[in-house]
Design a protein around this nucleic acid. Structure first.
Lengths: 247, 247
DNA sequence: CCATTTTTGGTCAATTTGACCATAAACAGT
DNA sequence: ACTGTTTATGGTCAAATTGACCAAAAATGG
């Protein structure tokens, strides 16, 4: 479609940083580019913005194409505009950060997003290590365009936001409820280090229980080992506001 | 130059939200548009991004044109892409937040930025009131394009950043030193409410003194009334990093 | 010399945080 | 049935932080 680009105009694209979490691991949706430029390198899902779409709409459409849903947490991440970021011509990219609950991601990924892999993201306080399904680590040169930089920017953003927003809950919007340990697992996967269970629970409850957005249900979890956890619910009053809110 | 735009492509522009502070007031650089569209309405300084410039470079060039300097705190704010934000055609705007010390702004504004006014921004915890030099309040409809939204986004951003970054110090980079009351005045102007002097000082010193970025000089201020204040210095180790750092 | 103004340092109670310990509630294996 | 293991949950306690004050220091203006 856009194999060659005109030399006389700036093209606008959106790229999606789609994050999910499973088994104490932060995961990131990447694909190997099937064509030039950067054939074979890892790339974020992207799309050119049409004349009749806002960037946000364009991102939502791409999301719909890939996963078949729009009801996800999405925020604008950053706009990358380096002159030579795309060898085909002048393309700027507006990157969006998308959070998908694993339970939704798992079935969707098979149906819609063929060719995509959910790669592992390991992140300590400073480090960032991304590995594909075979456990091979990616270097910056393994990425297409400036996508490695986009990834780093996004990870930093979400790490910072954990402190003062309930963005962690966007990773588990299942209506059946969730345990606070699951929330903790998500925070740990994003931050890259362990948290104290007792203190974590205390913090979450104080922060969100009195505002009514986090409330305990009557059900409890079914586990294999250990004491079953109480299940909580997230009241979505602000879920839709998330879509347009700017930090 | 761009009186009429082609209908077949997306144009990319940058807009600058230039903030400064004086006499306990947050100020914002605006001009009345001299031409259609939105003739007579208030607008941020802006510029179309050239084919051979990154957005950041373009913003820096505009800054250089307007104020004759580039050595200012600047960060990308947000990218606005609504389809109908510009009646001339399809234009997206990458907004940048710029902080100028008053002592630099005052002389520069006369020389370079003719037609621009430094308007007052009054901001409580929720409210936002912007008034021109004659004290007349602006409504959303008094702004061109979606510039009122850009302003609100920017004010929110800087208010949030006061908590966890030293962005307040960007308002006074004078080499002669500054008193902590001046810093406090800046914070109060941005936040829209008063702070306790003693607690404010305690916080600033704990946060930045031990890292070596804030240090007391031997000089003291010359005042009209009251005890003269000790002057402090900001060590710029991270000033340049500010330019590219993303929150 | 006194009243006023602003800076600076300090107190003190309330709150928050971080590092723990202890118990509760389940299961697995003997 | 009992024992050990595992995970969830509740509690303690000292350290650190915050917010609301008070008071002295250091200047000026009358």
């Amino acid at each position: 479609m856009h194999d060659t680009l005109g030399k006389e105009q700036i093209y606008v694209a959106v790229d999606l940083l789609i994050l999910t979490e499973h088994a104490a691991r932060l995961k990131l949706l990447l694909s190997r580019r099937p064509q030039e430029p950067f054939s074979g390198r890892w790339a974020l899902p992207g799309r050119f913005v049409g004349m009749d779409e806002s960037a946000e709409t364009s991102a939502q459409l791409l999301l719909m194409e890939m996963l078949g849903t729009q009801k996800l947490y999405m925020e604008q991440l950053y706009t990358f505009t380096d002159i030579h970021r795309d060898p085909r011509g002048r393309v700027i990219s507006i990157a969006y950060l998308v959070v998908v609950p694993w339970k939704e991601m798992d079935p969707l990924i098979r149906e819609h997003a063929e060719g995509y892999q959910l790669c592992d993201v390991e992140t300590g306080r400073e480090l960032l290590r991304i590995t594909d399904l075979d456990g091979r680590e990616m270097q910056e040169a393994d990425f297409a365009f400036d996508h490695e930089r986009i990834v780093r920017t996004g990870i930093q953003r979400i790490q910072g936001k954990l402190n003062y927003t309930p963005i962690g809950f966007a990773f588990l919007n299942d209506p059946e409820g969730f345990s606070l340990s699951e929330v903790q697992e998500i925070h740990e996967a994003i931050l890259g280090y362990a948290l104290d269970p007792s203190n974590f629970r205390r913090q979450m409850l104080k922060q969100y229980e009195e505002s009514g957005t986090l409330s305990q249900t009557e059900k409890t979890e079914i586990r294999r080992r250990g004491r079953p956890a109480a299940l909580y619910q997230w009241k979505d009053r602000r879920q839709t506001q998330w879509q347009t809110e700017n930090s």
